[in-house]
Simulated assay, not measured.
Amino acid sequence: MAVRDINIDNTPLSEKIAHTIRNNIIKGIIKPGERLVEPKLSEMLGISRTPIREALRLLEMEGFIDIIPRRGAVVTTLTRKDIDDIFIIKMKLEPLASRLAVDNLEKSDIDRLKELAAKMEAGSAKGVTQMINWNYDFHNIFIYKCNNDRLIRMLDGLQQQFKRATVYSFTTEGRTKKVNEEHLELIKAFEKKDSDSVEKIVETHVYNGWQFIRVQFEEVLTQI
């Protein structure tokens, strides 16, 4: 990994660093379990430790690394089986949460869903991490309104690894557009309080994401 790998544009430096490290993790150049040491990264990239520290926080939010006290940043593992296991569970539990949320969503919740959908449609200069976080917030609105604490905890447990898998969606323009279309369709169903449609839309949405991510993951592996 070298400073020449980072493209020069208007993207914040921390996001450029995160992008470089993220790609190297995906391609297997940086291995699962490997430590990312700030001073070493600073020396390799020829930049200060502050943007590197910010980049590592972004990668932690996406689930690519864990920041462990007295050990620092350690790369997590994501396999084909991880992706399948995550989405098999998510495809069953999240539609249920959405159905349970239908009668609990208030106008302010619908307005927030619309706001997030509009932000995702417009895109972000902050890059893929911001898109992932907006998508995370969008789904959490109806998950947390399902009013089932056990179901919420189960879905929370998937979120970090799910964020990592979701990176593949928001680095591809075609899928990003489709995600936005599916989100808008879901908002309309919530407004109509159509529980059957809401559940079906979320199930299809999660399944489409799963299949797309599987293809993208396999394509990355063939490049290694």
Rank of each mutant, 00 (worst) to 15 (best):
Y144Q: 12
D149F: 09
K178Q: 10
G157V: 01
K188M: 06
K200S: 15
I110G: 04
V167I: 06
D111E: 15
L184A: 02
D196V: 10
D194V: 03
D109Y: 04
Q130P: 00
S124N: 14
S124P: 08
L158A: 06
E199P: 00
V198T: 05
E191P: 10
I141G: 01
R150A: 05
R164T: 08
V167K: 02
L105A: 04
T204L: 11
S169W: 14
I110C: 04
V167Q: 02
H139N: 15
A122G: 11
I141D: 05
I110T: 03
V167P: 00
Q160D: 08
H205K: 15
T129Q: 10
R153G: 02
K188R: 14
H139R: 10
Q161M: 14
A101C: 06
V206F: 01
K163N: 15
Q159T: 05
R153D: 13
K192Y: 11
T166Q: 11
L105C: 07
K145R: 15
T172D: 14
K193I: 01
A165G: 08
D137G: 02
K178A: 05
V206H: 04
V128T: 12
A125M: 13
N133F: 15
I143Q: 04
Q159G: 00
L116W: 08
D194R: 09
R175P: 01
T166E: 09
A117T: 00
K145F: 03
G157E: 07
E191G: 07
L151F: 08
H183C: 02
H183W: 12
M154L: 13
M131N: 10
I141L: 09
N135M: 05
S195I: 09
L113T: 00
D156L: 12
V179K: 07
I143M: 07
K119D: 04
Q159V: 01
R99P: 00
D194G: 06
E106L: 09
N135S: 15
H183E: 15
A101E: 06
L113F: 04
E182H: 12
L116I: 15
F142Q: 02
N104L: 05
V167R: 05
L151M: 10
K114D: 04
E173P: 08
T171E: 15
K107W: 06
R150P: 01
E106D: 11
Q161E: 12
I152G: 01
H183P: 00
A125K: 15
H139F: 11
K192P: 02
K119Y: 13
I152R: 08
V102A: 08
E182C: 06
T171D: 11
N180Y: 07
V206W: 02
K145D: 04
G174A: 08
T171Y: 13
E115W: 10
N140Q: 13
D137W: 13
E199Y: 09
I110Y: 07
M131A: 09
T166F: 05
N104T: 05
L105S: 05
Q161I: 03
S108I: 09
N104W: 07
S197G: 04
I110M: 05
A118D: 12
T129L: 06
K193C: 04
S169N: 14
Y144C: 03
K177V: 12
E121F: 02
H205Q: 11
V206L: 10
K163T: 02
H205D: 09
F142L: 04
S108Y: 11
W134F: 15
E115L: 10
S124W: 08
T171M: 13
K193M: 09
V102I: 08
F170G: 01
L155R: 06
L155P: 00
K163I: 00
F138R: 00
F190K: 07
Q130T: 13
V202T: 09
N140M: 12
